[in-house]
Amino acid sequence: MIKLRHIYKSYELGEVEVPVLKDINLHIKPHEFVSILGPSGSGKSTLMNIIGCLDVPDSGDYILDGEYVDSCTEDELSDIRGGKIGFIFQQFNLLPDLTAYENVEMPLLYHRIAASERRERVLKTLEQVGLSERMNHKPSQLSGGQQQRVAIARVLAAQPSIILADEPTGNLDSVSGKEVMDIIRELWKNGNTIVLITHDNNVAKQAQRSVYVHDGILSEKECAI
């Protein structure tokens, strides 16, 4: 499903070119739950951006569902993101001026989904994360855990096949963190492919398989962090 072959990525910092990812090879099968572990600055977020089609590699192939993503235009990437990939961010990334309902509805507006179906999906997913009661609250009126659950509802409403979670519990207390991880595990059991990025070993353990990124190099074995 996700195939990364010889991915290289570097950033320019002034005059200097800093390599971030070096020769990354990764294969993730459908319905797999993979965690990507690594310290901050290791390049795991860049890897996630590439997997999530937010960024394109300098060289190497990224094949998503048999499609070569590295040759896509910006708008084609937008389509892939909207249709196949859902993001769960550490900072939740909800729009502060919109209510929980509107936040969940927002991605659907870009996919030309009929109003009645939109409403049905939003209500269903908000119920799934247990926030039906609070759908007219703005993010500032919700706790961190609730905000992250709204963000998860936003992902679910768009019905993606792959869910990318970047430190989903990083900004949460342990109770909310556990709630969020329970929901993510539930999604996996319902047939979604989950890619979890974290630096927390305890969180990573819940995945079927873990890979490690260190200084831009990916390995299947744990190394000293």
Binding site: S78, G82, L95, Y110
Partner: peptide, 14 residues
């Protein structure tokens, strides 16, 4: 940030 979020969930340039 808002623009980034909207693009991440599938908004196109237009």
């Amino acid at each position: 940030r808002e623009i980034g979020i909207r693009k991440a969930v599938g908004a196109k340039r237009k």
